[in-house]
Amino acid sequence: MSAQLDEKLMIPGQREQAANNKPAFAEESILNLDQVNIYYSGKAAIKEVSFPIAKQKITSLIGPSGCGKSTLLRSLNRMNDFIPEVTMDGLFTYNGQNLNAPSVDPVEVRRHIGMVFQKPNPFPKTIYKNIAWGPNINGYQKSLDELVEHSLKQAALWDEVKDRLHESALSLSGGQQQRLCIARALAMEPDILLMDEPCSALDPISTAHIEDLLFELKTRYTIVIVTHNMQQAARISDYTAFLESGELIEFGVTEQLFTMPQKQRTEEYVTGRFG
């Protein structure tokens, strides 16, 4: 199972290299899902899903509404812990460790696997404190001023807010708020950044801003993004997982999945015949 997926992870050039007895892994995977099931009150929302998440790449999860992609995303940093009805089995391996083992501290998991939500959710604090809060409670020792500036620059928001850092974050526009939430997540220097339809509440110009931003970020971070927008997935991601009714229909290199899908269902979805 795993070997088959690793093969799909390879881009064509690397496939040839692999054939020439080069290392079989095209990418280093940071997080691995193996036979994952997620249940809502006993009813399966995700069924037997397995795929790897490649380090410092963007992986997008696509599929029609209700296919379970957000539920799956939330299981990657233990956010489903807050929904008592949710149970799961299968193996989530993060850096070689079982993410759901009893000895794992979910708070520690979320320090390293950050999340940006569908709707911008800045805290009702100043712009500065929104960024500084996470590092602060986690005992960040170095200069917070520098960290705030660096994070806002990474999120392409610095120039717009540098003169009003101590104003309420709620005074920002929706697009700015979402970039603030991205900056807030980046300030934690996460290993993986999970994004749950981060552009769905935004106008096209703000969306373009955030997509540009993701291009920049992928050189330094591993990003997993849930999106409803297939063009977005095709534009920004390296790997794509297509889910339908809780099942993984197809996983592969984005370009291949969109241009030469292996499954008919995938082809129908990516060409807009349903969903």
């Binding site: 390293h112 939500f117 959710n121 409670i137 939430c181 997540a185």
Partner: peptide, 9 residues
């Protein structure tokens, strides 16, 4: 807001 806070560890 709570989720935002939890997601920051």
């Amino acid at each position: 807001l709570r989720q935002g806070a939890y997601a920051l560890g």
